[in-house]
């Protein structure tokens, strides 16, 4: 029997800031519409908390349409909740049952320190991009479209890799908190296109070095990242990054 509204018990990680230890709090929430999104459900909880004079639960969000990658959180031990290729903001309460208990935790990784409650600092990702995730050769004005022919299958693979929204679910879901799915997507999207080719060796060396420096774990080929990724980034990208890195290590001219 499906309900139009459900009652929930929420067990949420509360932590005022990075310096203090956090703990779980339990909240009862009644009459949540099953048409509400997960974030709207948290909005409803926060309204109630504010009315009671309590501190609302801090969580990250921006677009609420699955494209910005801000809204990641661990829902009952699953990154972005139970649906595949879905961000938390696109998850709906109809996926839950009346009287369910839902445990909500922030991403947990040494490289992603908690800022507050469910909000983590993902700027380690930005630093990986800054290390080499761009094309820096000066090519003058933008050339006419179609002057550089790119085979459709390469373009498609590059586009698939480029659909990574940098949400960090791959790190959160990986038992080693590895950032290889993210980094490999960013390495791939450029390595597959002519514009990115000239710097591909240097790029992968720098980005991997940064990734290690940021204290992400390493890949043990468990595949949890791929399953958790809301953008459907495939493990093939990690294999491609492994290849790129091997090639760059053996062939680049650094000393």
């Amino acid at each position: 029997m499906s309900h139009e509204t459900i009652n929930l018990t929420l067990k949420i990680w509360r932590q005022p800031n990075a310096e203090v230890e956090g703990r779980f709090e339990e909240y009862k929430l009644e009459g949540v519409s099953t048409h509400a999104s997960f974030l709207e459900m948290l909005d409803i909880l926060n309204d109630e908390l504010i009315e009671e004079g309590k501190e609302p639960v801090a969580f990250d969000h921006d677009c609420r349409e699955g494209i910005c990658g801000m809204c990641g959180m661990m829902i009952n031990g699953q990154a972005h909740g139970p649906d595949n290729e879905t961000t938390t903001c696109q998850l709906h309460m109809r996926r839950f049952q009346h009287n369910d208990k839902i445990t909500i935790e922030p991403w947990r990784a040494t490289a992603f320190p908690v800022i507050k409650d469910l909000v983590v600092d993902r700027s380690a990702f930005d630093r990986i991009i800054t290390a080499g995730g761009y094309v820096s050769v000066n090519t003058g004005n933008a050339p006419d479209a179609n002057t550089i022919p790119i085979p459709r299958k390469d373009q498609q693979k590059a586009m698939d890799a480029a659909s990574c929204i940098g949400c960090g679910a791959c790190v959160a879901a990986c038992k080693n908190a590895s950032a290889m799915l993210f980094t490999s997507a960013k390495v791939s999207q450029l390595a597959l296109l002519p514009h990115g080719k000239s710097e591909r060796g240097e790029r992968v060396l720098k980005m991997v070095a940064k990734m290690d420096e940021e204290k992400f774990g390493s890949c043990t080929n468990t595949g949890e990242c791929e399953a958790a990724c809301p953008a459907g980034i495939s493990l093939d990208n990690i294999a491609r990054m492994n290849r790129e890195y091997l090639k760059a290590t053996l062939c680049s001219t650094e000393s």
Binding site: K11, W13, F24, M74, N76, G77, Q78, A79, P82, N84, T103, E105, R108, A109, T110, A111, A173, K175, N176, A177, S178, K215, F216, G217, S218, T220, E224, A227, A228
Partner: peptide, 15 residues
């Protein structure tokens, strides 16, 4: 890899 996640999750569930 252990030190890449110092605090474990309360609930773990594979996707």
């Amino acid at each position: 890899n252990k030190s890449a996640r110092k605090q474990d999750y309360d609930v773990n569930q594979s996707k």
